[in-house]
Simulated scan of single mutants.
Amino acid sequence: MKGKLLKVLALGIISSCLAFTMSACSIQSQPTSSSDEKVVNLFTWANYVPNSVVNEFQKQTGIKVNYNNFSTNEEMLAKLQASKGSEYDVVICSDYIIEVMGKQKNILMQPIDKSKVPNYKNVDPQFLNQPYDKGNRYSIPYTLGSQMIVYNSEKVNFPIKSYKDLWNPALKNSLVLVDDPRIVIGMTLKKLGYSMNETDPKKLAQAKQELLKLKPNVKVLDADTPHNSLINGDTTVGFMYGSQASAAVKSNPKFKIVYPEEGMNAEEDNFIIPSKAPHKENAGKFINFMLDGKISNEATTANEYINTNKAAKKYMSKKYLNNKAVFIPDSELKRAERFRDVGNATKTYDLIWSEFKQK
């Protein structure tokens, strides 16, 4: 997932060097800053916007895309803080980090002029007006990610329907989990009937004990490629992102996708424009282009994230629509819970995770 699985780690800012990845037709050593240039500086995860889409935008508009990538939301925020919001034109980042940024004294995002983005009308209303940015003043949804259970039906002799089934002693040394504290602790909290964003110390203490009970069943923790252990037969059940579950199913149709009965998590990735974007007009044109139904479908078909664009549906192939890992029914999405900034409780989550991994 392009390093994205690390995105809900503690919200301490990572001061690290940024590696640059450019699209085939967008080779540039540094972001360009002259306001009258036909350039847009994009900052997101590597390969999250397909080259074919980048190339089509450049062809249609004559605006060159300088594609720069980060590994985590925290790295992105550190870069924006270092440049005071002046280096990039469009950033694609996650919902919870937008919430964090919106609480800061010096907000590094600028309000998006919707009149410059007429394709905003294409965004499915169910993904708008979320708590992290009420009214979508600063952000516009691009895609949505979610985690789910996937298991080998030939090797597991009972049906898996929920998070609680992962605690079954019959699955000893059989699980692969995405290596991420908020995701795995969140799953445990949902099993107990609590919110994934729980901050009550007593409920978190209960979740800690419950998670430790799961440890005998866990064979692999993998942030980036958890599906590989399923594919090679090292594990038989996994909890991972949809695009990873999709890779497992493509390798072996015996793998089954499960939407947990307790409810899923949903994480929206959004377009934002930094506060001092050097090419603000071009930023609006790029976002508007990405919200075109045909382009949106092309992007999510390639990156296998959940599409948030209602105009894209008429372009979706049967293969995409039948892929349970990337086309999740609205009934599931509407009851899914979003991660939120848990403030000081982040330290507790980190301590729980540390003990779980060390046990």
Rank of each mutant, 00 (worst) to 15 (best):
S115P: 04
V90E: 00
Y67T: 04
L177R: 03
V117E: 01
M76N: 08
K79N: 13
Q147V: 12
Y88F: 15
F57L: 06
N119Y: 03
L77D: 04
V176G: 01
N173Q: 14
K103F: 04
L80E: 07
T72Y: 04
K116G: 06
M148G: 05
T143Y: 11
L166Y: 08
K114E: 04
P118G: 07
L144H: 02
S52Q: 14
L144M: 14
N129H: 13
R137D: 11
I92W: 00
V150A: 05
D133P: 02
K114M: 11
I160D: 06
E56V: 06
C93L: 14
N168L: 07
Q60S: 13
Q58I: 12
F57A: 02
D95G: 03
Y67G: 01
I92E: 00
K116D: 03
N129P: 08
N136Y: 05
I63V: 14
G85D: 02
N51F: 11
G85V: 03
D179M: 09
N66P: 02
K161G: 11
Q58E: 15
L171H: 04
G62R: 09
E99G: 10
I63F: 06
R137E: 15
S153L: 03
I98E: 00
I63N: 07
A170P: 02
Y120G: 02
P111H: 08
D124C: 04
A82Y: 13
T143L: 11
S146W: 00
T72H: 06
Q81L: 07
S139R: 02
M148Q: 13
K134I: 13
E99T: 08
A170M: 11
D133M: 05
Q130G: 07
S174P: 02
V100C: 05
Y96Q: 09
V176S: 06
K172G: 09
G62Q: 12
T143P: 00
K59Y: 13
Q110F: 05
K103L: 10
N136E: 05
Y142T: 01
S174Y: 03
Q126R: 15
G135E: 04
V53S: 04
N106F: 11
S94W: 05
F158P: 04
L171Q: 09
Y96F: 15
S83W: 06
M101W: 01
V91E: 00
S115W: 05
D165V: 07
I140L: 11
P125R: 07
V123L: 09
D124N: 15
E87A: 13
Y163E: 09
L177A: 05
S146M: 10
I97M: 14
K105W: 03
N106I: 08
K79E: 14
F127G: 00
L80D: 00
I149C: 02
E87D: 14
D179A: 10
T72A: 10
I92C: 03
K79A: 12
V65K: 00
Y88N: 01
P131Q: 07
L80F: 05
G135F: 09
I140T: 01
K155T: 10
K103R: 15
L108T: 01
N119S: 10
S162L: 12
L166N: 03
L171Y: 10
D113A: 10
N68T: 14
Y120R: 05
S174D: 14
M109P: 00
V178D: 00
N55M: 13
N106D: 14
S162R: 08
I160N: 03
